[in-house]
Design a protein around this nucleic acid. Structure first.
Lengths: 117, 117
DNA sequence: CATTGTTATGTCTGGCGAAACATAACGCCG
DNA sequence: CGGCGTTATGTTTCGCCAGACATAACAATG
């Protein structure tokens, strides 16, 4: 129960950004490919790609730059905007944890301890 | 686009608390009844009740106290624990807004302005 | 020029949560 | 004691989203 998970979603009108997309951006940055990122995260390529599409459509400029064909079939990497969004989101999560530590602890203390083994 | 909506969900193991349950608690406190709260929020009584059930089961003591029968058919109100959880959650939201203002603004500036009328 | 691994896109289907519908219990109050 | 509005609970149906499956386009490279 200790790992109190905070799930923070930001809604800018129809545009949404949350932990899933942040993790995906991280995986793309690490793997250099959408399909490899999808495999790592246990999701289908199609799902990963549709998330990327949504992100690229929702921001003023794409967060992920991708190319097909070529030496290793193609690949993808984060744009400057993508790196900015990811970094700021992670920073926001960290700020929430520190600034809200007391509130989180107060609520957590009222949560029934998990009985399951 | 200005109303950047923050959707903050807390996961304590299997127990979850987020904006929907917070709003429901608020509506119950204001209306004095689960069904009236559900109507106000545009959700079925059953759904409202199932959320209340989940909350009452997930915390060390119920967040909502309810009674059936009687003068006006029955009613419901927040327990001390319920008021605490609600207040702390709202406080946590406020802290996030102030502590993360710069990060939220940075991301928001990169979001495509909503073209829809 | 065939091979290769990836991006890109479409269709179809199953499962699951949500909503709709139904009903019982309850307790004041006129 | 019957009516009322609410809590409480079960069953059944429906919509939709996720995943499975299929396929084309693409560009380097040997």
């Amino acid at each position: 129960m200790d790992p109190t998970r905070l799930m923070l979603r930001l809604y800018f009108g129809p545009v949404m950004f949350g932990p899933g997309k942040a993790d995906l951006l991280e995986a793309i940055a690490a793997e250099g490919s959408i399909s490899a990122a999808g495999r790592r995260m246990g999701m289908s390529y199609k799902r990963a790609w549709s998330l990327v599409e949504a992100m690229n459509a929702g921001f003023v400029e794409p967060l992920v730059d991708s190319a097909r064909g070529g030496a290793h079939g193609g690949g993808a990497h984060l744009t400057a905007a993508g790196e900015t969004v990811l970094a700021q989101y992670r920073a926001l999560e960290a700020r929430l944890r520190e600034a809200g530590a007391t509130e989180i602890a107060t609520i957590g203390a009222l949560v029934k301890p998990d009985v399951s083994g």
